[in-house]
Design a protein around this nucleic acid. Structure first.
Length: 496
RNA sequence: GGGCGCGUAGCUCAGUGGUAGAGCAUCUGCCUUUUAAGCAGAGGGUCGAUGGUUCAAGCCCAUCCGCGCUCACCA
């Protein structure tokens, strides 16, 4: 049947209900219990009165009695209604109910002949009429006791565009977002206990910085000025370290005007944190502790099955030197090699190059080609080429490197950290060379932030900094294949 | 941006050039412990869009739109 006529029919039912003096959009309902607690503690509830509310997900009418399943926030429960008990009028009204309607039920808890825990209705109330049909999914149980879904609402486009429908009919989706919320609060609790201060820094920035990425641009009318949506929080948070906070963090959206795929959404959630008087060695242990804390607090365990492999966050992470590992895998000493020599090696790996790549970029490529995909265990890649890291401090003992690490799990980058560069003279030089790269056409090179230099000139203590992509972290812990599966409303092209 | 694939009823899908289909959902009737409830009947379509080939297009061709997977770009 055509959608409009399905809606039309429900609108007619709505009118009929109004003629029966039933208000189809109620103001409140006194809910006393939810489906999960009734089912998990049946002995306590048996024969006791409860008031539950939720969405009708299935109706089975059998003349003068009916069964319906209603779904609340915690799950589904069956309701049994009899004409001789709820009355002629109420039963007539129930006949006008549809799948999707939101109702409240008062009744007592019992088990049917087939042992299903149910609510035997004494009365029911329509709380909100649904006039648009929801996708119908049905569930059976196979011989081995597994749930089998029929006609599942599966169109990914519709699921992302109409997430509200996805959440109604695909309960495992709701699970993921509940876990996401719990993961983020576990992180907050951990950081608060470590005496870090949660702060908020500008989303709208006149100069963007803190990462290599293209920004979104916007315009402020009153000041008639161009503004950028932040690509990172980094430079503002470090200004706060200059200002005398010993530890700060921010969990917030960043925006990058770049491609979209299963690891990238234009807006995404970042955790950044900075701690004074610490370095990147300290930060590695901090990361290990934080991941273990989240694993235990949210999941009560440290071992996870991810893509068929076991990952244990209860153990120390591997630590691998970036340049040493490249040398082990390829025999190339990237520090002594010239850019041209590296270019040849990368080409021999079958990579196509444009010819304009910097030495740092080539090292990064070589690393990706020879090492990165093999990193399934939690691993810190340590000590990056200076060219790739304009905000990180030079390595205390190794020429050409900075004190930086990235954490990888299952071959995916999950965090990025360094001993923060606090030498204003050095920082100025790094910005200058970034500026040269911009002039040479690298539109992702950093802008010069004079005010940030000024802040460093006042003096910033030695500081360790960390960035964690929260969406990717959630993907990891919930075993979801795409970033769109951990973002409630991922960016989509407009409809039509 | 490249490659591959998909787009048919509200949902899940079949339909390989000759009268648009199935299950669920919807509607009518029967049915007081059912459960993918059952039985009997009925309605429901711009086959993503536009153009082309053909006597004839859901099907073949082209272009466009949207989505998915993948590669590239990108932390």
């Amino acid at each position: 049947m055509e959608l409009n006529s399905l809606i039309q029919r429900r609108l007619e039912e709505l009118e009929k209900l109004q003629e029966m003096n039933i208000q189809p959009y109620a103001y409140e309902f006194d809910v006393t219990n939810n489906s999960a607690e009734i089912k998990s503690d049946f002995e306590k509830f048996e024969q006791k009165d409860v008031k539950i509310a939720g969405r009708i997900m299935a109706i089975r009418r059998m003349g003068k009695a009916s069964f319906t399943h209603i779904q609340d926030e915690t799950g589904k429960i069956q309701v049994y209604l009899r004409k001789d008990e709820i009355g002629e009028e109420a039963y007539a009204a129930f006949k006008l109910m549809d799948i999707g309607d939101i109702v409240g039920v008062e009744g007592f808890v019992f088990k049917t002949r087939t042992e299903e825990i149910s609510v035997h209705a004494k009365s029911f109330a329509l709380l909100a009429k649904s006039i648009r049909p929801i996708p119908i999914t049905k569930e059976t149980v196979d011989e081995e006791g597994n749930k089998v879904l029929h006609d599942q609402f599966a169109d990914k486009e519709l699921r992302y565009r109409q997430r509200y429908v996805d959440l109604i009919v695909n309960p495992e989706v709701k699970e993921v977002f509940v876990l996401r919320s719990k993961i983020i609060s576990a992180i907050r609790r951990f950081l608060d206990e470590k005496n870090l201060l949660e702060v908020e820094t500008p989303v709208l920035q006149p100069i963007y910085g803190g990462a290599a990425a293209r920004p979104f641009e916007t315009h402020h009318n009153a000041l008639d000025m161009k503004l950028y949506l932040r690509i990172a929080d980094e430079l503002y948070l470090k200004r706060l370290i200059v200002g005398g906070f010993n530890g700060v963090y921010e969990i917030s959206k960043d925006f990058r005007n770049e491609g979209m795929d299963k690891n990238h959404n234009p807006e995404f959630t970042m955790l950044e944190l900075y701690v004074a008087y610490k370095d990147y060695n300290w930060m590695m242990e901090f990361v290990e502790e934080m991941f273990e804390h989240v694993a235990r607090a949210v999941f009560g365990k440290t071992e996870f099955e991810i893509e068929g492999r076991t990952v244990d966050f209860g153990k120390k992470w591997n630590r691998i030197s970036m340049v040493d590992e490249i040398k082990t895998k390829t025999g190339v000493d990237v520090l002594s090699a010239s850019a041209d020599e590296l270019r040849e090696v990368v080409k021999s790996k079958g990579e196509e190059l444009t010819g304009g790549e910097s030495k740092g970029k080539l090292i990064d490529l070589l690393f990706e080609l020879s090492v990165e995909s093999g990193l399934s265990e939690p691993t810190f890649i340590v000590d990056y080429p200076l060219e790739l890291s304009p905000l990180a401090k030079k390595h205390r003992s190794r020429e050409g490197l900075v004190e930086r690490f990235e954490g990888f799990v299952m071959g995916r980058e999950i965090c990025n950290a360094f001993s923060e560069l606090n030498d204003p003279i050095d920082q100025k030089e790094r910005f200058s060379s970034q500026s040269k790269m911009r002039d040479e056409g690298d539109d992702e090179a950093h802008q010069i932030d004079e005010d940030y230099i000024r802040a460093l000139e006042f003096g910033m203590p030695p500081t360790a900094g960390l960035g964690v992509g929260i969406d990717r972290l959630v993907m990891l812990f919930t075993n979801q294949p795409s970033i769109r599966d951990v973002i409630l409303f991922p960016l989509m092209r407009p409809e039509k």
